[in-house]
Design a protein around this nucleic acid. Sequence first.
RNA 1: GGUGGGGUGCCCGAGUGGCCAAAGGGGGCGGACUGUAAAUCCGCUGGCAGAAUGCCUUCGGAGGUUCAAAUCCUCCCCCCACCA
Length: 402
Amino acid sequence: MVFLSPEEQLQILKSGVVDLVTEEELLERLKEGRPLNVKLGVDPSRPDLHLGHMVVLRKLRQFQDLGHHVILIIGDFTGMIGDPSGRNETRPMLSEEEIKENARTYAEQAFKVLDPEKTELRYNSEWLGKMTFADVIKLAAKYTVARMLERDDFEKRFKAGIPIAISEFLYPLAQAMDSVAISADVELGGTDQLFNLLVGRKIMEEHGLPRQIVMTMPIIEGTDGKMKMSKSYGNYIAFNDPPNEMFGKLMSIPDSLIIKYMRLLTDIPKEEIDSYEKNMADGNINPRDVKLRLAHWITEFFWGKEAADGAQEEFLRVFSRKELPSEMEEIELSGPENIVDLLVKIGAASSRSEAKRMIFQGAVKLDGLKVNDIKFTVEPDGEKVLRVGKRKFYKLLPGSNA
RNA sequence: GGUGGGGUGCCCGAGUGGCCAAAGGGGGCGGACUGUAAAUCCGCUGGCAGAAUGCCUUCGGAGGUUCAAAUCCUCCCCCCACCA
């Protein structure tokens, strides 16, 4: 634990932050000289943390390093009801065991960034589950529809004619009750959470508590560089992605995102990043090399130096020098096999039509030679390398159990 | 409860009897190129079969009309707006 003055702490804590409501209040709170309760709400479903989460978690870690107390609220109560937002299908209700398991997995991943010693896990069913219907109505009375519609996405949906369930109006209120229950001093979230976090201030006030300080972090775009990183957009880089995949995904981000990722996700010194930014703009440095630095840093953070070195070497080998990867999935051939059948069987194509399409497009190579006949037969005579597209490699072996 | 408008492929969205497996965009995939799985350009993108203008399944659900339906009719389910 580092002892810094409130002013010094404030300087550190407000860096990289988008919204801070309010800076004065945070300073006041820091001056109280006690560990602050810093809250983050966590969705109890599908715990697959990605770099988007990392931005907020890193800020929490900063609080911890300054001696403050982090509380992760597992939204098991809301999870059991099933959050209707963005619903296309009704989400299955999660059982208690599933939620516990999800919370465990979440924590396991989050602790790659957070200090477990200074992190507390709480389940919001503990207090929300005790509320009666009358309590809920009283709570709901404290907020108006007009104010709810201030929330950007509600307003957009409302205007666009996309349904909003009443329960969705209740969610920000439930989240606010979490802040009341743990007497949060600070609540963090992505910028998209600003509204919910502010509702927390109002509801805390209604309960005679000091208003929580609200801090939001930037949302980062995913690997496509367009939409925010999200599992549902499939443009995410997960904490659990194996080194080669993590490295490769980082190398696939658009150049325009490199600096933003560096600033938000790494501890690379500011001066160094500034110089990369300038030199890329001036054309003095190849963006690829800066991206390599970024990919290496993040891969090392999650997997260690050795794995990061390996991933980088592998990347350069396969994509820069166009050599074969060091490890390939091995497929045993039990006999002669038609190329189309084979592609479908090993999962390189999802249908026979797709397999044929890829062959017609010249995506299929056997030992470096294009296969352009869908009637081609692969003979099980010796080791061969089958390549499908740029990224799929298979080592074909004569079957031993033919 | 009333009136009006809607439900289309992974997503958004056009299409109101045949030329529709269904415009366009996004996403995805492939190719070329490169500095990288960036950018850019080109192509593909329901399944089966392939020389192919061939066959099968798809436009909320179930029936029906017709030589022929995403398009017309009936009933049902769901969504939205306005009025109450």
